[in-house]
Design a protein around this nucleic acid. Structure first.
Lengths: 210, 210
DNA sequence: GTCTATATCCAGATAGAC
DNA sequence: GTCTATCTGGATATAGAC
C-alpha cells in the first residue's frame, strides 16, 4: 500500500501533504500547467515551506517520482518472492496494476502515463528503472525454464504486458468504463492462450506487396 | 508518405517549414520546454509569420496534430481497403507503424507518445480519434467473422496492438537498439500464436490469496 | 521551520514599419 | 505577408519577519 496516500497519521506530515497535492494536480492538469502557487494553495501550506522541503517545483516532482518508483519496486519484489510459476507472477503484477488503477489512479497515471524526462532533467526513461528491469528478467527466466515461448525477451515482455498497459491507458483516458479487474480474466486468456480462434495453421503474414 | 516531411518542393512552403521545425523541437524537448522563439529560430522565419499563420504556439501544435491525424487516418483507410484478411490488415498496420518509427520517428513519437491534452485544450484523447476507432471496428469485424477469439473488443484490440505499442515505446526510449522491422516476424508470431510454449492445459491463474 | 511580500526573469503575444 | 522591437503577465525563486 503506497505510503504517500496511506490513511493519514493526522496530522499528515507536511511533506506528504505537499506531495499528495502535487500528484493530484500534476496528473489532472499536467506538470507544466501547475504552478508552485497552485500546489501551495491545494496543500494548504506556504510557498516558503515548499522551497524548504523540496527546493522548488522540480524537486517536488523528483521526490514524488523517487518514492513511487521505490514503492513499485517493493511491489515487484514482493510478487517475485512468492512461490508461483513465472506466468503466475506476471499475472499477479498485472492484477495488482489493475487494482491500483482503480484505487490509486493518480499513482498509476503518474508512473505509467507521464513523460518524466520532460520535466525531471537527466531522468533516464522509466522502462530502464529497476522494477521494470526486474520484470524483464522475470520474463527471461520464463523463457529459460520453458514456460514462455523462446523469442527475444523484449518482445515477450511487450506481448505479455503490452495488453495490460494498453488497457490501463484506455481506462485512464476514459474509453474503458468498467473497473479493470473485471477484464482481468479475459485479458489473461487472450494473452496467454492465443488471440486467434484456431492455431492449426501458421500465422498469416502479409502479402509480399506491403 | 506524410506530406509534412515530403521531399521539399524547394522552397518548402513556410507553413511546412514551421511545422517541421516545431515537430522536431516538441518531440526532442517537450512542448512546454519549447518557446515560440525557439521555433522561430529553428525554422528560420520571423515570429510575426508564426503568429500570422498559426495564431500562436498552441495553434502550431493543433495544426500539427490535425494534419498528422489525417495522414494516419488515410494510412488506416488504405490498409482497410486492401483485399486481406482481418488479421493480415492488423499486421499490416503494425508493420507500417514499425517502418514509420524508423523513417519518421518524430511523427510516431508525437502521435503515439505525446500527451496532447496537456497542451492542446479541449482535445479528446487520441485513442478516441477516427483512425483508432476504425482499428477497433476492424478488430470487432474479426471477432464477428470468427478470425479473432470472441472477447471484449477493447481487450482484443489491446492484446493485438499492445505489444507493438510497447515495442515502439521501448524503441523511442532507446531500450531497443535494432530497427523495429527486424522484430516484426517474432512479434506477430508471439501475438497471434500463443506466447506460452504449450496450450494443452488452460491458462494458470493466480492463487486465491493474491 | 513557517510565513508574507517582493524581486527577477522569460515566454507568449502585439504593434507598427516595410 | 514578413519583419523587428516592445509590452505584459505570470511563473520561479528569494528575502526577511516571526
Amino acid at each position: 500500500m503506497p505510503y504517500l496516500l496511506r490513511p493519514e497519521p493526522d496530522p499528515m506530515p507536511m511533506d506528504c501533504r505537499i506531495l499528495t497535492a502535487a500528484l493530484e494536480l500534476f496528473v489532472n492538469k499536467g506538470y507544466h500547467n501547475v504552478s508552485v502557487h497552485d500546489v501551495q494553495k491545494h496543500a494548504k501550506v506556504s510557498i516558503g515551506s515548499i522551497y524548504n522541503h523540496f527546493g522548488g517545483k522540480q524537486g517536488i516532482a523528483r521526490a514524488l517520482y523517487d518514492r513511487l518508483l521505490q514503492e513499485m519496486n517493493q511491489m515487484v519484489d514482493s510478487v517475485i518472492s512468492q512461490k508461483l510459476s513465472i506466468i503466475e507472477k506476471c499475472n499477479s503484477i498485472i492484477k495488482l496494476w489493475f487494482e491500483y488503477t482503480e484505487s490509486h489512479s493518480d499513482i498509476i497515471a503518474f508512473m505509467l502515463h507521464a513523460k518524466h524526462n520532460e520535466f525531471i532533467t537527466d531522468q533516464p526513461p522509466i522502462c530502464s528503472a529497476e522494477p521494470f528491469r526486474k520484470i524483464r528478467e522475470l520474463v527471461q527466466d520464463g523463457i529459460d525454464n520453458g514456460e514462455i515461448r523462446a523469442c527475444d525477451c523484449l518482445i515477450a515482455a511487450s506481448v505479455i504486458f503490452g495488453g495490460a498497459y494498453r488497457m490501463i491507458s484506455l481506462r485512464l483516458d476514459g474509453l474503458v468504463d468498467r473497473p479493470l479487474p473485471e477484464y482481468y480474466d479475459q485479458l489473461i486468456d487472450a494473452t496467454w492462450q492465443s488471440i486467434r480462434t484456431s492455431v492449426e495453421c501458421s500465422t498469416p503474414r502479409l502479402a509480399s506487396n506491403s
